[in-house]
């Protein structure tokens, strides 16, 4: 990568951007949007969290070690799992494991393919593995979240359908499968729609970042296309796996469905 020189921001220059928040504050006040506190908290948290991340990444880049990369990877994965689980409190214990394993497994497989097979650098090279895994895990988490939410909505609103088919002697898996197919679709659609508009409606973040830092646009688009395909795959894989493994935890060997989880 060439570093044809991005303008290094001085702290003073950088702090000017915070002036824009005054615009948001003013509009919020005028429009009676009572989220001033959240705006302040969000801006502060973002600043602190990213500053810390900046320090940590600087340290890791200056002292590259498989240990640091793995630790960062592990922390990111655990965080993604934690977020997905805390947003879906209705999951039973085994379903939680299904979600956790699916997220971690799918994320690692796609990341490894990207870094080792496509880019062909050392898997523990922090410069590639860390940012790519962030995008992959983050999107996998959002996808799984959407999928689980849609599954649960369907499952609880269609209880009569489930009971009816159960009484008819239909296999629980067959009864639940349409809900998970639906959920998978819901999880995938935002990513696919995003791909459709890409380059026209928006220049995506990663590509913009690379161009700003001096990477030729032709290289930047190759990375962008690659990451989009990786994201679509990881969302699909993680959601499919979480739902398919998870469905099995909703009924027992007597083919009884526990509706407590659907409430």
């Amino acid at each position: 990568m060439t570093n044809a020189g991005i303008v290094k921001l001085s702290i003073f220059q950088f702090s000017l951007i915070y002036l824009l928040l005054i615009v948001v504050l003013a509009i919020m006040k005028k429009a009676n949007v009572n989220q001033t506190r959240l705006l302040v908290v969000a801006s502060l948290r973002m600043t602190v969290q990213l500053t810390l991340a900046g320090f940590v990444l600087t340290y890791i880049f200056e002292n590259p070690s498989p240990l640091f990369t793995s630790a960062y990877l592990l922390a990111m994965t655990l965080f993604a799992i934690h977020r997905a689980l805390s947003k879906n409190k209705w999951l039973n214990k085994s379903f939680k494991w299904a979600v956790a394993l699916s997220l971690a497994g799918s994320g690692l497989i796609i990341l490894a393919f990207f870094v080792i097979v496509v880019v062909r650098v050392d898997f523990f090279n922090p410069q590639y593995t860390i940012p790519l895994s962030g995008m992959i895990m983050g999107n996998a988490m959002t996808g799984v979240n959407l999928g689980l939410k849609s599954f649960k909505d369907n499952f609880s609103s269609q209880r009569k359908r489930v009971e009816t088919l159960l009484n008819l002697g239909v296999k629980p898996r067959k009864i639940l499968l349409p809900f998970s197919q639906n959920a998978l679709e819901t999880a995938l659609l935002p990513t696919l729609n995003n791909m459709v508009g890409m380059g026209i409606i928006s220049l995506p973040g990663m590509m913009t970042g690379q161009i700003l830092s001096g990477t030729p646009p032709t290289t930047a688009i190759l990375y962008q296309i690659a990451i989009m395909i990786a994201i679509a795959t990881v969302v699909c894989l993680a959601t499919f796996s979480a739902l398919n493994l998870g469905i099995r935890t909703l009924y027992n060997d007597r083919n009884q469905i526990d509706f407590i989880y659907g409430n």
Binding site: R159, K160, E163, T164, L166, N167, L168, G169
Partner: peptide, 17 residues
């Protein structure tokens, strides 16, 4: 087998779907 049982002892429940 519960599935076979349910097919033979068929319950028309109250939740009409």
């Amino acid at each position: 087998d519960t599935l076979k049982l349910r097919q033979e002892v068929l319950l028309v429940g109250q939740s009409v779907y």
